[in-house]
Design a protein around this nucleic acid. Structure first.
Lengths: 186, 186
DNA sequence: ACCGTCATGTAATCGGTTACATGATTCT
DNA sequence: AGAATCATGTAACCGATTACATGACGGT
């Protein structure tokens, strides 16, 4: 019944918004921002502006329902529609075609590090990265422990646990890099 | 001496191009495409069009030198300039501010998987991902072995080895997810 | 009343992606 | 010679990022 049913292709960003609204119920963009910051934002970040524009797009296309309050902040609150739910369900069920991407500038630098001529560059890089990843590993461990205490066992927690595996791998990797005596067995 | 010295901000893409040209010597966009496909493209992909437009931008800003052949394919060959080298060196030396991003739609799905209501969704997802990551792990192992035979021990090989660590972590993670009896120790 | 931070957006730009298009080579 | 693939780009669009801007709210 909505005539603006133009073919709008749904990006990962779209599904994040859709999923979050489905998960948390009626949300404002700021709610989304908070939710992202607490969870997925850890490994896949979205600038806040997108969490304002994307829901608008989705609403226009009929995947979300937008209600704007009159007084005060005049904020827009989004609710998922049946159509939105269907789109989400379809995405969840469909086979995951897209691979993955690890966009890590540290790695990029390492790849070109030999160009610098100076071995110190690699040492420094490895030390930095090791530090950063160790820190995050510690953080994730804390959070995971908290979630465990709270008895949370659903798949949002599982996602966090990926962070654990990842950071562990990163720590080991950068340790390996830092050791000048060469590459060990994996 | 170049008057078009406008402030052009250098993105990761820029450094990939710069670094590759520095590493491989004079290159065409197609060369870059090939090089990317063989190496960094494995975890950080760049559509080929970018490898045509980016060098142009860099050339215009004085980081690359462009020479176009007359006959045949009339292709443009890029060489790194002193300015380009400096930019690259500066980047390599500077502290890596930007964190990393893991953009994996499989993970995203997992995060929202419980919304589907159907446990089969998770099973299927985990199976798929496990398969995909196992395959890539195998591939990386092969490539690494080849590189080892060739006696390559520089940091471009090290970068590949990150792929090994990563895929191993991913495999373990998705195995964990696939096992319904809950989450084990990490 | 004032100040700082929280919250909520909009606008403009620009890089990234998709799609299109064509000319060289190579193979049969 | 013709088909198929390799190679080399261009153009248009659109999402993503940055920057700007302002209004509410909470505390002093």
């Amino acid at each position: 019944m909505n005539h603006t049913m133009s073919t709008l292709n749904l990006t990962p960003t779209s599904y994040v918004v859709l999923g979050l609204v489905a998960q948390c119920g009626p949300s404002t963009s700021y709610d989304l921002k908070q939710a992202v910051g607490r969870s997925i934002g850890n490994f896949w970040s979205f600038p806040h502006a997108q969490l304002y524009t994307e829901p608008a797009r989705l609403a226009e296309a009929g995947f979300l329902d937008e209600k704007r309050e009159q007084g005060g902040r005049r904020r827009r609150t989004y609710t998922i529609t049946e159509q939105g739910r269907r789109a989400l369900a379809r995405w969840l069920a469909e086979s995951t075609a897209g691979g993955y991407e690890v966009r890590d500038s540290g790695l990029l630098k390492l790849f070109f590090a030999d160009l610098a001529g100076d071995p110190e560059v690699v040492r420094k890089l490895a030390a930095e990265q090791l530090q950063a990843h160790s820190d995050r590993l510690a953080t994730y461990r804390e959070i995971d422990a908290q979630l465990e205490q709270q008895g949370i066992t659903d798949h949002t927690r599982a996602t966090l646990r990926f962070g654990l595996w990842y950071e562990q791998a990163a720590v080991q990797f950068w340790q390996e890099v830092g050791q000048p005596q060469g590459i060990g067995r994996c």
